[in-house]
């Protein structure tokens, strides 16, 4: 099972978002960067699948040179290869991002004979939240696609039902995915033939912490690099701003257990006590 997982480097903002004076970016001088949680779960899922069925996990990111750090974080979790689509630091839109990812996937190909059997994504990028890159990649590659998945089972049936997997080398002809999610109280299950594109949400698994050997391996791993060409698109960011009404201050009801009577009165006032 050859799996491509696409992850994005996003700022790790804490209690407050600060925008740069020109209104074009989040101020990241005080914050680090991370892979967003949905995508970290996508990597964990891919690692678990290859541990069971064999094969390798390739992690890919489109971003500045520093995004190699996030690839190494994911290599430390058990991914085998890293691919960096290096940009000049400009923010790419979802159409251009999807096109560049699809091009990169084509380099290896999809399907049996060494191509990717499965492309995993996060449901949405934590920062821009465009909710579309995976679907656009699926269309560009002519693959079936489902998003927002919370439960995934991969079955290899190529060599007859129940055959033990583990080769990975010959690809996964006849493999299928059963993917499900909850939607407004109903469980929705989808059955897809691989190769396919699937985006997942946090909660699908509990990502492991990187092991020490994993970290060492990640440090030494070679990251393949490409420089796709930037393209503008029809949706353009003009200004980022923090929503109004963010900086009130709570009325302090009291300290420790002394505040309990005030809490009870407040709950009565809110009408939440029967």
């Amino acid at each position: 099972m050859e799996i491509l997982v696409c992850v994005k480097r996003v700022p790790m903002v804490g209690g407050k978002v600060v925008v740069t004076p020109d209104g074009q970016d989040v101020d990241t001088r005080m914050s680090g960067f991370a892979v967003s949680p949905h995508e970290e779960c996508a990597v964990e899922e891919a690692v678990q699948i290859t541990q069971r069925l064999g094969g390798t996990v390739t992690v890919l990111t489109l971003g500045p040179a520093e995004a190699a750090d996030q690839l190494r974080d994911m290599l430390a979790l058990g991914a085998g290869h890293g691919v960096l689509l290096e940009t000049d630091g400009r923010e790419w839109g979802p159409m251009a991002t999807a096109a560049a990812i699809a091009d990169a996937a084509r380099r290896r190909g999809v399907g049996p004979d060494g191509g990717y059997d499965l492309l995993l994504f996060g449901n949405e990028a934590a920062d821009t939240g465009d909710y579309q890159v995976p679907v656009r990649v699926a269309h560009a590659l002519g693959l079936p696609c489902v998003t927002a998945i919370k439960n995934l089972e991969i079955t290899e049936s190529g060599a007859g039902a129940g055959a033990a997997g583990g080769s990975g080398a010959g690809g996964a002809a006849g493999a299928r995915a059963r993917a499900s999610r909850e939607y407004r109280g109903i469980e929705e299950a989808f059955d897809l033939a691989l190769p396919a594109v699937i985006s997942v949400k946090e909660g699908i698994n509990l990502p492991r912490y990187p092991s020490l050997p994993g970290r060492l391996r990640a440090k030494r791993a070679v990251i393949e690099q490409f420089r796709p060409e930037y393209r503008g698109e029809g949706l353009r960011k003009e200004l980022l701003r923090v929503p109004p009404g963010e900086s009130k201050r709570a009325e302090i009801l009291g300290t420790g257990t002394d505040a309990v009577p005030a809490l009870v009165r407040l709950f009565e006032e809110f009408g939440v006590l029967s």
């Binding site: 009325e251 257990t257 505040a259 809490l263």
Partner: peptide, 22 residues
């Protein structure tokens, strides 16, 4: 804590004492 700037009301204290008392 940043939540103090987002909440309407706050109790400053150890939840492991405040919640059982509540």
């Amino acid at each position: 804590a940043p939540i103090i700037a987002r909440a309407d009301y706050a109790v400053i204290g150890d939840l492991n004492q405040v919640i059982p008392a509540l």
